[in-house]
């Protein structure tokens, strides 16, 4: 109990119980915070999920989120169409073709890491300068999609690379042994066995596209209509949410829109953990 001048026979350990309490309460606080945020929005928002919110056309009375939802899907598809081929091809080059210790590989990795760290607003400004102003695409679906494609490129690249690395070399050797060329081996043997890993990367990318706001305001604009073409301005659900919450008039609708957005994220997370489970299940099964 009291600090003896000489090495005490029995030292009371204050640290351990305090640390134990700190660790447990930190974990508790973290869980409570997330439950509170999600729970609060669900409870406040679900009662306001009115049919008018899902009307086909947006106007300032019903503040319908349907166009924004459709735009989100279009935006996701567009950015994936651009990013997935580049991301997978980069990963294929890094894993299957590049030689060990290749200088270029180092530079590519560094570039991807840099891209992964750039804040979305910087992407937004860059997209605005390159696509909207320089290429004269105006605020458009295409400009937004391309900006987001650059943003999710490192995500897809990294997960695909990991998935390809996880394919055992015996697969490749077996394929070569049967007389298949490099290209055939990559497309018929390696890629199919890496599909779940690639999919999980794509889902991560979808999550980022769905949640993105800052990169879109100055590239895709905020027109709440279903676009007629790739050069029309669009507003995704997150941007819609941002604009709506800025208008004090539509606080209830903002809650309801937030609910839809959270449900979307929950769905994406569920799919991703389902794929992850399938992947580990397959590995354990074999």
């Amino acid at each position: 109990m009291n600090n003896a001048p000489h090495p005490p026979r029995k030292r009371v350990d204050w640290f351990s119980p305090i640390a134990r309490i700190a660790i447990r309460s930190a974990a508790g606080i973290t869980s409570l915070v997330i439950m509170f945020i999600v729970g609060y929005i669900l409870i406040k928002g679900i009662p306001h999920l009115k049919p008018s919110l899902f009307a086909w056309k947006y106007n300032s009375d019903n503040v319908s989120l349907t166009p924004a939802l459709i735009n989100t899907i279009l935006m996701t598809i567009l950015s994936l169409i651009v990013a997935v081929p580049f991301g997978t091809f980069t990963a294929i080059y890094l894993v299957e073709y590049a030689k060990r210790g290749n200088k270029l590989v180092k530079i590519i990795r560094m570039a991807a890491e840099t891209l992964a760290g750039i804040p979305s607003i910087v992407y937004g400004i860059f997209g605005m300068m390159l696509f909207v102003v320089h290429l004269k695409w105006q605020y458009s679906l295409l400009a937004g999609g391309c900006t987001l494609a650059i943003m999710v490129l490192p995500v897809i690249m990294r997960t695909t690379e990991e998935a390809l690395l996880a394919v055992p070399d015996t697969y490749r050797e077996g394929s070569f042994g049967l007389g298949a060329g490099k290209l055939r081996t990559v497309f018929k043997i390696v890629l199919p066995s890496a599909v779940p890993g690639i999919l999980s990367g794509i889902i991560l990318a979808i999550g980022r596209v769905v949640g993105e706001t800052a990169a879109l305001i100055f590239t895709a604009g905020s027109l709440a209509k279903i676009p007629h073409g790739a050069f029309d301005s669009t507003r995704t659900l997150s941007v819609h949410m941002y604009i709506l919450s800025g208008e004090a008039l539509h606080i209830d609708e903002s809650y309801a829109t937030a609910v839809v957005l959270i449900l979307l994220v929950l769905f994406i997370n569920a799919v991703s953990s389902w794929i992850a489970k399938k992947m580990t299940g397959e590995k354990n099964g074999k």
Binding site: S31, S245, L261, V265
Partner: peptide
């Protein structure tokens, strides 16, 4: 807790802002 933290990572920043 694990999926809760995944959810936390996935929630868009506008929702946090709201």
């Amino acid at each position: 807790i694990d999926p809760a933290i995944s959810l936390m990572a996935g929630i868009p920043s506008v929702i946090y802002g709201f």
